[in-house]
Design a protein around this nucleic acid. Sequence first.
DNA 1: AAAGACAGCAACCGCTCGCAC
DNA 2: CGTGCGAGCGGTTGCTGTCTT
Length: 292
Amino acid sequence: MGYKPSDNKPKTKPKHRKGLWSPEEDQRLRNYVIKHGHGCWSSVPVKAGLQRNGKSCRLRWINYLRPGLKRGVFSSQEEETILSLHRMLGNKWSQIAQHLPGRTDNEIKNYWHSYLKKKLLKAEAQCSRPSADHINTDSANNIQALTYKSLENAGKSDQSVMQQGFGTPKPKLLFAEWLTLDHVHDGSFSNSSEPPVPAVIHRDLFDNYSCFDDGIMQDYLFNEGTGLALDGKYDANATTPSDADGSSSDMFGSLLKFEDQSPGSGSDQLIDFNSGHDICSQFNMNNDVMYI
DNA sequence: AAAGACAGCAACCGCTCGCAC
DNA sequence: CGTGCGAGCGGTTGCTGTCTT
């Protein structure tokens, strides 16, 4: 799918290869990043022996080669999350992707344009609105409020999210990299069946970020079956009420991590919130620590 | 069976932002 | 302050597979 590789057409000056990535290219890039990290992306293709530009390498890594990516159909829970986050954030695909472990912004964006947007428009059309034929791409966003309302009326939206106040600034979730190189086992990458990736949460954010006072993000983050409590302690008795289809635990993972900012706390401690065990030995975040 | 329409998605392009100098 | 560069993001393109006629 996608472009045909255009490397068969030699140009006057050396050109960066375009189009689909070959398995060999993937392997080169993968091996290089695993060994050395990406560092400066513009130097990656040179050092990795690829005839691509750094931008292309970066995109390929992020969208396809990066370990921990979840491929395949979006769950209903993920769909709900996208819908509600899109209402909050608009077309901030990268920010939306940060809430969907294993999903890339590109994937979410494509999913939105190919499916969810149409779904919204259909719901809007059902709500005795003028013909959706008049709605173009630019105007689509302008009717989001209405269409979401329509969707809600159609019984497809997450009511708990709809009830939330969306004007409140949200803490930025920076899931920098979902998996570390340590998720590469024997040269093969993990797949979606592997455990979710630990995220690092700056505890002071939870202490100081006013947004959490209103309970919106608390509800959002902590009612998703992660068994978290605000003080960072693992709540083994936490239930997972919203995990109706079993996917919310995929979304936020069971391996959230609080990064203890207190002096003398030493190295980051990774906590498996499902087991309460230190999983530091299993995950080495290196430079790709995830922050919230 | 063939041709056209449509859908899905990987990848490109251009812009903005942050940082170093 | 202005400039250059790299990284990241969002919009768009265009190829391929599938569906419809």
